[in-house]
Amino acid sequence: MKLTTKQLTLCAVLTAMALALSYLENFFPLSLAIPIPGIKLGLANIVTVFALYALGPGQALLILLARCFLGAVFAGNMNALIFSLLGGVTAMLVMIGLSRLRKLSVYGVSVGGAAAHNCGQVAAAVLTLGNTAPLYYLPVLLGVSLFTGALTGLISACLFRALAHTDLMKG
């Protein structure tokens, strides 16, 4: 994929933002309210949604992969990579599919993405633990993803409104 300097810069900025959002998430420990390992708001998904519409699937995937790798490197925990990769890529594929359906709003795409992200993570847990026990969490996680998906959808919608009149994305 050949990127213009502007696109490359934008990708870098968005990757940085996604990483920052992942970090920011630690200050909203959702696991305190719902005691399930690995449960979180999924704020970094905002960047994925945004990139998907603003830059297209290719660059969105690029940002996602960079975010997963860098996140694991920063956390010093390569084991976490399979979780974030499997979750992230599943979410990405589902959102690419859903975003093709022009009838859906950013909310629907977000909710679908959040649900897919959780499915991916549970799959990763089942794979790494070699045990089907994590499946028990899936129904709850799916229920929660309705809320987290709606929340990221709302924030993404605000973002698109705010940026709609800038020429940031043009060209």
């Binding site: 719902i34 909310y107 028990y136 129904p139 709850v140 229920g143 929660v144 309705l146 709606a150």
Partner: peptide, 17 residues
């Protein structure tokens, strides 16, 4: 519908097994 569905989602799934 969205709101109602989400509520159901939480009640239905958050309940103890």
């Amino acid at each position: 519908i969205l709101a109602a569905a989400m509520l159901c989602g939480l009640c239905g799934c958050g309940g103890a097994p």
